[in-house]
Design a protein around this nucleic acid. Structure first.
Lengths: 102, 102
DNA sequence: TTGACATGCAACCATATGGTTGCATATTGT
DNA sequence: ACAATATGCAACCATATGGTTGCATGTCAA
């Protein structure tokens, strides 16, 4: 499962948002009010973990999950050449770069 | 089919890259050397069109396709809060700017 | 008009995907 | 030790997905 596919499912994006908003969370916590079963959430989390978007560590009987921004970064970098307002963004950054690096 | 799912397939990302590199292209042209049938390419293009990532217009018997950056931009915007490492991004931009704009 | 070419349409197929349910296992507090 | 809690594992199911093939349609050039 690659990163793009991992991001394709709305439930998984929802999980990403939840982890971004409310620190490290367990499977149970992420399941509450998600509208699908705990096992389904586990599957989604496993996919996110395989895609390295989420990392998990055990704390007793809980599995705590947190975001790993790197792979998302890579997706963003792939998108950039195709995204519009690229020029506008470039010119904005051009100013910054001009100050800092040129 | 939403934008994220449209971007999930590697063949479709390949099509996006091809359209970005070599202007408006027909189905035939996009099929050459793609490794799958013309009909499969058509299906992928239809998905990209439904996601508004690609627009198509007829020129005689050919259907010409071009990129529409807006939806890709929206995806990029969704990703931004989760993607950190702006510094790395900046250094890439510096390179880009150095080549094309400075 | 006729033939070549680009595309459209539809049926079909194998596998992936997203979900469920049922039961097993491990950890914690009393 | 025991019960409650959090998770793991596996079978199962319906539908989506990505591909194929075969044939029909529309357009252009000779």
């Amino acid at each position: 499962m690659d990163i793009f596919s991992a991001l394709a499912d709305p439930k998984r994006r929802q999980l990403i948002e939840a982890l971004w908003l409310h620190g490290p969370l367990s499977i149970k916590q992420l399941s509450e009010g998600a509208g699908i079963s705990r096992q389904a959430i586990t599957k989604h989390l496993d996919i996110l973990i395989k895609a390295k978007i989420v990392s998990a560590e055990f704390a007793g009987k809980e599995r705590l999950h947190r975001l790993n921004p790197k792979p998302i970064e890579r997706v963003a970098l792939w998108l950039q050449p195709f995204a519009e307002q690229w020029d506008e963004r470039l010119s904005r950054l051009k100013h910054y770069l001009g100050e800092d690096h040129e």
